[in-house]
Design a protein around this nucleic acid. Structure first.
Lengths: 333, 333
DNA sequence: CAACAACTGGCAAACGATTGCCGCGGATGA
DNA sequence: TCATCCGCGGCAATCGTTTGCCAGTTGTTG
């Protein structure tokens, strides 16, 4: 049975000052006399005092906590993001609540509702919610999004320029002689997916190649076989897959069916997650700077949370680039 | 500027009862008259009321939050654990604070100190702390460990029987004709490492083979080349590597040096993380049920947190098994 | 020398929910 | 009819911290 933790009152009594003075000594440097402050600090140290988060939250309205909401905790794409946000938030004195919504819009809503008031802010990664919903939530709670913007919204966001990376991938395939190429897309609720489709359609027109749109598919390895079979049926020689996880599943299936990659079919993934260079053939993919994205998102949120000069800082778009490995090659003769 | 969230007082006023009655209507079913309760519930619903975590925490002393502390957030080994704990905790109405200590004992201590009082309990995964420290913390805060036990401790834990899995791996290699086998170990602070060393030494004696102990190594891919080189220098034909991450690094290096796996050297990993079946040759490894471990850990903690009948439930040991893939084969003639 | 500012430290009121205690009214039993 | 008990709902204390306000002291300036 853990005994009662020391309170500010204990510290105050031990150092012979009022509770308010003790409070100020601890969190308003300069507000109290240096020698008094030192006495309080010493008492706090002796007692092993650390402020009660609940008390502080109640009184100041700030919890020093932010939530990171992701659609799939098992997708390595989010690891970099998690690490990026966590390291910055920790520096800023915040802790991190991690929420996995398992690709469900409803779970996302429920989560936001339940943590409203529990957290000072939210980082919403690859949200599946609609524009209106996000805009509405951004009125209620300081918000930063990753890979999602909302037109006319008044919150900051970090976007990765995946459409451009995909276009690079398309150009790569075209330069290898491919002229019929498929795009195996992700969930309809994915903002990123829509933008890629547009950019690819435009680029395909410009390059004079045929683009076959497939999907939507769940962005998971298990959905790979369906993609592989659809791709083979479509008669293309190259495919751009929504993300690496799905691409892994595609490669599994192609190997099982004895289809040569890249001889018969070139495959490009997206995200450059952990494992992309492990698989054989090593996956050509669009690399996105997830950890940096996490850093930026945390910085933007911290800026918005700044009690003295809260500000919605300019949004950020991070460049992506194609990493060519062994899963792409010249088009079949 | 988000407007003030509705408080219990608002609900009470709207339904024409006292705050205390509203509180009881919401969280003490049966304590108030059914029709009154319904009125309160309706008001709460209309207002979109959800209880302030801070207020509740302060008054009841419970935060409905638990911390999951892991040494390396980027190690896929912990993903399964995270998902396992999260799903169970959510069912129990708890949220999840994730902390990455980056393999540092000091960071682990610091974390525990800073979250004491912020959370109702802690799940400590693969802690690097010493027995005494863990025992001490377990006095202060309800605690469940994963892959770590402390003799005579009064907290529950979930252990995976990795030593047995490693012995299976050793037997596997021996049956393939290997007689000189290395064990490339993890951090000295890893409890699991010590137990595996003991079990392997015993088994090697029983089987009449020579076991070469190497290490300690950092359990990361980047440390792999050093392991690979040490293994080659040691003249063994098979190696048991501390975890898959490290094994991936070993395979990288062996491929770069043109060493045939499993022809010249057999490699066994541990954990069966995401990617183990992706790498080529696919990695033979000891599979551990991480998600189940997460479930159990959460259940044990929830049991300990139960306000009516708190209890330290019996600890759990989960079986592991060897997954044979392509990185092991007959010993070199 | 008077007036004023700057600096310190204390008092007490929030913040929002939980919960022990009490009192009121109606039902029950003797 | 009276004593008792129970069901229900209100009052008010409590949790630990922050912070607006004020008062006392000291130092500064015209």
């Amino acid at each position: 049975m853990p005994e009662r933790a020391p309170t500010l009152r204990d510290v105050a009594e031990r150092s012979g000052v009022a509770v308010s003075t003790a409070s100020r000594a601890l969190c308003m440097p300069g507000r109290v006399n240096a020698v008094t402050a030192e006495r309080v600090l010493a008492a706090a140290r002796d007692l092993g005092y650390s402020a009660s988060a609940a008390g502080r939250a109640l009184s100041s309205g700030r919890t020093q906590t932010v939530a990171l909401v992701v659609p799939d905790i098992m997708n390595p794409f989010f690891f970099g993001i998690m690490r990026g946000t966590q390291s910055r938030l920790r520096e800023g004195g915040y802790v991190h609540v991690l929420v996995d919504t398992e690709e469900s819009v409803e779970a996302e809503e429920r989560t936001l509702r339940s943590i409203r008031g529990t957290v000072d802010g939210v980082i919403l990664a690859a949200s599946r919610m609609g524009d209106d919903d996000i805009a509405r939530w951004s009125q209620d709670v300081p918000l930063v999004t990753i890979n999602r913007t909302v037109p006319g919204a008044e919150f900051a966001s970090v976007a990765m320029d995946t459409p451009n990376g995909e276009v690079q991938a398309l150009e790569h395939l075209v330069s290898l002689g491919h002229s019929r190429i498929a795009y195996a897309g992700g969930p309809r609720t994915s903002w990123s997916d829509g933008h890629r489709r547009e950019a690819l359609a435009l680029a395909a027109g410009r390059l004079g190649v045929e683009l076959v749109g497939l999907g939507p598919y769940a962005p998971k390895r298990e959905a790979g076989p369906a993609v592989a079979d659809a791709v083979l049926a479509s008669g293309v020689t190259g495919v751009l897959v929504f993300n690496d996880l799905l691409a892994f599943g595609v490669l599994d299936r192609l190997a099982a069916r004895g289809v040569d990659v890249p001889g018969r079919l070139s495959v490009v993934g997206c995200d450059d997650v952990f494992g992309a260079d492990l698989v054989r053939p090593a996956l050509t993919t669009v690399a996105v700077p997830t950890e940096r994205a996490g850093h930026h998102a945390a910085d933007l949120l911290l800026a918005a949370l700044d009690r003295l000069h809260p500000r919605v800082a300019a949004s950020v778009e991070l460049p992506t680039h194609l990493v060519v490995r062994d899963s792409t090659g010249p088009a079949q003769a």
